[in-house]
Every structure is written in structure tokens, then in C-alpha cells.
Write a protein that binds this DNA or RNA. Structure first.
Length: 598
RNA sequence: GGACCCGUAGCUCAGUUGGAUAGAGCGUCGCCCUCCGAAGGCGAAGGUCGCACGUUCGAAUCGUGUCGGGUCCGCCA
């Protein structure tokens, strides 16, 4: 649980830079200090790292280039640094001694997959809520992206030092659950041999028969096996709801949640807490939280303005119980009670988030579909009001996924129940391809999921490309174990290998990339953007594939040097460290590293 | 009418939270296997970062406006 920061050469060098700046008797305000960064050089000609320290610390009297030079001089005294120069408007370019870079390899091998762990989360209790759906059917591709993004984000936050709980909110309290019960009841009547036709049955259902998919057929059969004909009339027709509704509803809900959890398990998603909206409602939590807000003067009875330009036909002003969300930046105040006095979904959701706060979470992240974007401001307002500003709600919005095959859209019809389920998707392309591909776009960008591309074994399929790099690493290490014995080629043995033979440019390029892993983790965690991990791994794989191919032209770059064990082990340390970082990244994404391609 | 998201190479997308000459893949063209996995690699061509102002040493990134695409907007959850 407790993550400790492991080697982070960028953080180390930033400390050195700050010390060098302060040695120039430059007083740094905290906000100036914060803005000083040490980042990878964009171009190899600039060295390994660049800092903006002189640009940031410059004042009217002291121009960037003037203060850069003494800072650079101070840095030159650092034994880890090879050379330092000042360029452009006042950038300080740092080139590390190659020994400094090489020393990362044993550090990475000793740390293993813990390399990249960070303490920036500070143990902050964080709750990541994702998938949260109406339990009315199997998980389909629309939920899939949120499931993967939420799960990877939670993993990422763990790696960054947050105390994370993964949570699922079961929306099991609304009218659609009653509709689900009717649909299951229909399958039950069919199972016991009702004389009713589907049309005759549907005519009796309030709101019409929904959820026509055949996934409820087994549920109906099980109900029949358990209850026989006891839930129907003597003629096997529709009995009074008091006879069957709560029984069928509860049973069906349990079955649907079992299905959903099984689907999520196929995706590799295992959440810690499942919270029931129904349980919350029945406990009276919504009324309690409304009373709490009222005590703070944030509740009033009022009439909302109709939306401008798009007033519904049947609009008529009605007094409602309203929450002053405008106090916290929302556009309009929001209703908590319907005109019949029952609570809105929003009221229940406030109670749910109040519950999270009571459980001690200080960072709440909701992973939602983009169609909930308009709902976020009122929820943020509620969390700010309830926590008196001590906790924050953040929303990660996932845009829609279009499934295509060979450029043609795959039709999805929810009404017919034939829409693409996660189960179908995983059967076709595999769990790892689904998870990785879902993370190859920013969450808030629309995505095309091309069924053909994600199984293609070419460079334009990032899943394959990254897996291939790892498989190549493992392949070399297997060959090395044959050659030198498994004892000499384990990660721990390689961590002790002498590294003098290393240091050619393509090798250093890989090590520079490995060096970035901790700061990638931090930046991705702070931005709540797990997709950055996927792009980092793709870049690392590219560096590694390049090195591999350079070995074809230049035999000194080959990993296995016949008859030269010391040189081989030095290169194997680089290979093993690369494999470690790929595994570390894939672990965040929830993707299995493969030993060989098939 | 309003809110949120997006707009970067012919196409699909990154861009390290304000840094230097804006990067990948696909597609096009030209190369590299006697050799650890060529399921790969190297190179060339391709750009007014939608547009216009503004903020400052410096803008794809921040602000305002505007155009285009998407999502949403009181008793649905």
C-alpha cells in the first residue's frame, strides 16, 4: 500500500538546479520556485535535460541570460553532470555524464515494477467511481471505455501515492428498474407457458415493455424454477404487482449485477466497493443531506426559469425544492424534489457523495459518459458545499466510442438487445487489446475502435507494437539464460553487472526514455490522464526497436556478444530494465505483458 | 438562447500544463535481413496548430470574440 519514491533523476536534478539558483542569492518566492522545471531536452543536440530556472527567476534588474551563467557554473561542479550550457533566451541545457545515466539501470532492476512509484499523492484518500450504470443489462461497449479509463486511472493514482478505493454506484432505485422487473416478469411468464402474446403483455405494462433482449430469458427460467407458477394468476397471466414485483425486481437486480461483475471481470476490472442507490434512498440519506444543506441556508422553495430558446411545449412554472448551486459556480439552481414530493436523482446523488465524504475521501473522481457533462457543475457544487471546500470532486468525461470494422460502423441497436456487449468484444479481440486500445486516446476525444486494426500485427497497432518490444526483450533474455545460465541473467544478477561497455547513442536513447518513467507517472496522475502511459510505452518501444535494428548494422550494438560475457551482461541489463518498465506501465493499464508473440 | 468537449500534415492522433526549428503512425516515394524475432528499422515529401484580436521575454497551450463538429439543458436515471 505504501508507495515510496524510487529513483527519479529528473527530480534529483531539479533539486540540484534549485540549490544552484539559491546559491546565487536569488530569493525565490514559493510560486516562482514551483514553476522551475527540469524536463527532457526536446532535441539530442541540447543535451539530456533543460531547465527554465533562469527564465523563471529573472527579474526586471536581472535578465535571464545574466543569471543563467552563474547557475550553469554552479551546476558544472555537480559530479553527475558532464556539461552545461546556456542557450536561446536563457535555457540551461544539461548533459549528464553517461555514467549517471547508466547508473539508472541497476536502480531500475533493483526496484523492479516499483520503479516509477511516486509519493505525490501523499496518501490522500481518493475515491474513483466508474462504470456506474443502470443494472438493466450486460455491459456494452459504451460502458467499456469508462470501465477501462477508470480502472487505469485508479491504478495510476495508486502508483502515484494516493490511497485509492475503486467504486461502482448501482443506479437501482429508479423507474427503469421497475421496467426491468416487468421485462423479467415477461420472460418468467413465457417460462411457465403463458397464453399471452408479447403484444397482449406489453399492453398491460406501464410505459410499455422495455429491455426486450434475450439476456433475460435465463432469469425468467430461474424464476420459474424457484417459484413455479406462484407469481402468476391461475391462468398463467399477469398477477397483481404486490404478488410478484418486489420479488422479481430484487432477484433480477441481483442477477444483473452478477452478470455485470462477470463482464467486468472479463475486462480485468475488479472494484472494491459497490454502493446501492436503493439502499441509500431507503436509509433516508437524501432527506438527511437536504436537511444538512438547508441548515447552511442553501435550500429554498422557488420556481425555475424555462430554458431560453427551447421552452418545452408543456412548460408551466412550478414551485420546487431547489439547491443554491449557483453559489458555487453552477448556471442555475437545481431541483432536489419533484412536484410529487419525491426526490430527484440529483438529491440521491448528493446523498451518495456525502456518504463518500463521510467515509473520509478527500479526492472524489467520477468517470462519466460525456452526455453527463452538463450534470457535473451541480455535483461539484454539492461536494464543495458539503465538504465546506475541504474536498474536491473531479469529473473525467469519456466521449463516445464508435465500433467499426474495416472502416464501416458496426450497428448497435439497444432496443433489439443486439448491441455489442463487452463479452462479444473481448471474445473477438481479447482483453488486452480492448484495454490498451481504449487508452490510446484522451478520454474527452471521440474514438473509433477498429476491430480489424486492434488485432493487426503491425506498427500502427500500439498494442502489438508494445507487446512485441516486451516479447523481444524476453526472447533475448531467454537466449541469454541458455548461454550464460539463468543465475547470471536474473534481474538481480544483472543489477550487479559491470556496465563499462555500454554508452553508445542508441543505447543512451533508451536509457533516457527509461529515466522519464517516474515523471510520466506523476504528470499523468496529476492530469488524471492514463492515456499518457500508453503513449509513453509506445515511444519506449520505438526506442527499443530502433536499437534492436541498429544491431543488425553494427554488431557492437547487439545484445548478445558471442564469447564476451561481460559485454553481453551489460547490454542485458539494459534489456531487462526496458522489460521492467514496460511491465510497470502495462500493469497500470491492466494489460498482460506477453513472453512471446503468437 | 445557454453550458461543456473537440478543431494540429491527405487520414487517425500526440504534444511533457507557457519554452528553442510543432511530432508519431497510416498513406505516397526511396532504401535495409548470411547476423539476438524484417510481426521490425532508416530516409524523403507533407503545416498560416479553424480564424481574429489580446496577455509577455516567449502562445498549439492562457483570455476575449468568432466559425465549424459533438454532447447536453425543470418532475430521466
Amino acid at each position: 500500500m505504501n508507495r515510496t519514491a524510487v529513483t527519479d533523476i529528473f527530480a534529483d536534478m531539479r533539486e540540484a538546479v534549485l540549490a544552484a539558483v539559491e546559491a546565487q542569492s536569488l530569493a525565490l518566492a514559493d510560486e516562482v520556485r514551483e514553476r522551475i522545471t527540469v524536463s527532457p531536452a526536446r532535441e539530442a543536440a541540447h543535451g539530456d535535460m533543460v531547465t527554465n530556472a533562469a527564465l523563471v527567476a529573472a527579474t526586471q534588474g536581472r535578465k535571464p541570460r545574466q543569471i543563467a551563467e552563474p547557475i550553469a557554473a554552479a551546476l558544472r561542479a555537480d559530479p553527475r553532470i558532464g556539461s552545461v550550457d546556456v542557450a536561446g533566451p536563457g535555457f540551461i541545457n544539461i548533459r549528464l555524464r553517461s555514467e549517471t545515466l547508466l547508473a539508472l539501470l541497476p536502480a531500475i532492476l533493483r526496484a523492479g515494477e516499483a520503479y516509477g512509484d511516486s509519493t505525490i499523492g501523499g496518501g490522500c484518500p481518493a475515491n474513483v467511481e466508474y462504470v456506474s450504470t443502470n443494472p438493466t443489462g450486460p455491459v456494452h461497449v459504451g460502458h467499456c471505455r469508462g470501465a477501462v479509463v477508470g480502472d487505469a486511472l485508479a491504478n495510476l493514482l495508486v502508483k502515484a501515492g494516493y490511497a485509492v478505493t475503486k467504486e461502482f454506484y448501482i443506479n437501482d432505485a429508479g423507474a427503469q428498474v421497475t421496467a426491468l422487473a416487468w421485462a423479467a416478469y415477461w420472460r418468467y411468464l413465457q417460462a411457465i407457458g403463458t397464453p399471452l402474446t408479447e403484444q397482449e403483455f406489453a399492453a398491460e405494462v406501464p410505459g410499455g415493455l422495455q429491455y426486450g433482449g434475450d439476456y433475460l430469458v435465463p432469469v425468467g427460467a430461474e424464476l420459474a424454477a424457484i417459484h413455479g407458477a406462484a407469481l402468476a394468476t391461475a391462468e398463467r397471466g399477469i398477477a397483481a404487482p404486490e404478488v410478484w414485483l418486489s420479488t422479481v425486481r430484487d432477484f433480477t437486480l441481483a442477477e444483473m449485477m452478477r452478470e455485470i461483475r462477470a463482464d467486468l471481470a472479463l475486462l480485468g476490472v475488479h472494484q472494491d466497493v459497490f454502493s446501492s442507490e436503493r439502499a441509500l434512498v431507503e436509509s433516508g440519506a437524501a432527506d438527511a443531506v437536504i436537511a444538512q444543506l438547508a441548515a447552511d441556508g442553501l435550500i429554498y422553495e422557488g420556481v425555475l426559469e424555462p430554458p431560453k430558446g427551447k421552452a418545452p411545449e408543456d412548460w408551466e412554472p412550478r414551485p420546487q425544492t431547489l439547491f443554491r448551486s449557483t453559489t458555487f459556480g453552477d448556471d442555475t439552481d437545481r431541483p432536489l424534489r419533484k412536484s410529487d414530493g419525491s426526490n430527484t436523482y440529483f438529491a440521491n446523488d448528493i446523498a451518495y457523495h456525502a456518504d463518500k465524504l463521510e467515509r473520509g475521501f478527500r479526492l472524489l473522481i467520477d468517470v462519466l459518459g460525456a452526455d453527463h457533462g452538463g450534470y457535473v457543475p451541480r455535483l461539484k457544487a454539492a461536494v464543495r458545499a458539503l465538504s465546506h471546500g475541504e474536498a474536491a470532486l473531479e469529473a473525467v468525461l469519456c466521449q463516445i466510442v464508435h465500433v467499426v470494422r474495416g472502416g464501416q460502423p458496426v450497428p448497435m441497436s439497444k432496443r433489439a438487445g443486439t448491441y455489442v456487449t463487452v463479452r462479444d468484444l473481448i471474445e473477438e479481440v481479447g482483453r488486452d487489446a480492448v484495454r490498451f486500445t481504449m487508452l490510446t486516446r484522451k478520454a474527452d476525444a471521440q474514438m473509433e475502435f477498429d476491430l480489424d486494426q486492434v488485432v493487426a500485427q503491425t506498427r500502427d497497432n500500439p498494442v502489438f507494437y508494445v507487446q512485441y518490444a516486451h516479447a523481444r526483450c524476453r526472447s533475448v533474455l531467454r537466449a541469454a539464460a541458455e548461454m550464460f545460465g539463468a543465475g547470471a541473467t536474473s534481474d538481480s544478477a544483472l543489477a550487479a553487472a559491470a556496465l563499462e561497455g555500454l554508452g553508445a547513442e542508441p543505447e543512451l536513447a533508451v536509457i533516457r526514455r527509461l529515466a522519464q518513467w517516474p515523471r510520466v507517472v506523476q504528470a499523468a496522475a496529476l492530469a488524471r490522464e492514463p492515456h499518457r502511459i500508453a503513449f509513453f510505452l509506445y515511444d519506449l518501444a520505438a526506442d527499443f526497436h530502433m536499437l534492436w535494428n541498429r544491431g543488425k548494422d553494427d554488431s557492437t550494438l547487439r545484445f548478445l556478444q558471442a564469447g564476451r560475457q561481460a559485454e553481453s551482461l551489460a547490454r542485458l541489463a539494459l534489456v531487462a530494465a526496458t522489460a521492467v518498465v514496460i511491465r510497470s506501465g502495462l500493469a497500470v493499464m491492466g494489460v498482460t505483458p506477453v513472453e512471446e508473440m503468437r
